[in-house]
Amino acid sequence: MPVLKVNGSPHEIDLPDDTPLLWALRDTLGLLGTRYGCGAALCGCCTVHADGKALRSCVATLADVAGAEILTIEGLGTAATPHPVQAAWLEIDVAQCGYCQSGQMMQAAALLREIPKPSDADIDAAMSGNLCRCGTYSRVRAAIHRAAEFI
C-alpha cells in the first residue's frame, strides 16, 4: 500500500493514485485544517508543503507527491510551540473568518523558509496566489514582516 509521509509520520493510504492530496488529508487522515476553496489552484486555501515547498494540495495527486515529506498546518506549530508565522498572526490579529488562513500561513512559512527577510515585493510575489475574501491582506503582509523578526 502506498505510504504518505505527513507531519513526520508515515501513513498507509488505500486510495487511487490520482486522488488529490487535499482529500487524502481531509477525508482519509482527518487532518481538517487544510481547506477546500476552489479545487483548481486558484485560491490557495489548501496550501501545504512538499519537501519544504508550497504546494496546492487540491491539484497535486498522490502520484505527484509520492515520496515527498508533506507538512500541513497541523504540523507547522501548536499553541504551545507556535511557528513564528503563527505567533505573528496572533500578535497582528490577521484572521477574520479564518477559512483561508491555514493556506495563508503555510504559504508565508514557505516564503520565510526561502527568504528569511522578505521585502514587500517578495511578499507580493509569494502571496498573490492566496485569496482572502475578508480582505486581510494588509495584515498578512504586516504579520510576515513581524514573523521575519522572530526568526
Binding site: L55, R56, S128, G129
Partner: peptide, 26 residues
C-alpha cells in the same frame, strides 16, 4: 496571481510553477 518568472525561470522562491502545476494536466 502575479506569477513571476523568478531567478531560475521556475517562479519566485515561494511561488514556484510547481506550487500549482503538477506532472499531468489536472
Amino acid at each position: 496571481m502575479g506569477v513571476a518568472r523568478g531567478p531560475e525561470n521556475h517562479g519566485t522562491p515561494a511561488l514556484q510553477c510547481a506550487t500549482c502545476h503538477q506532472d499531468n494536466n489536472a
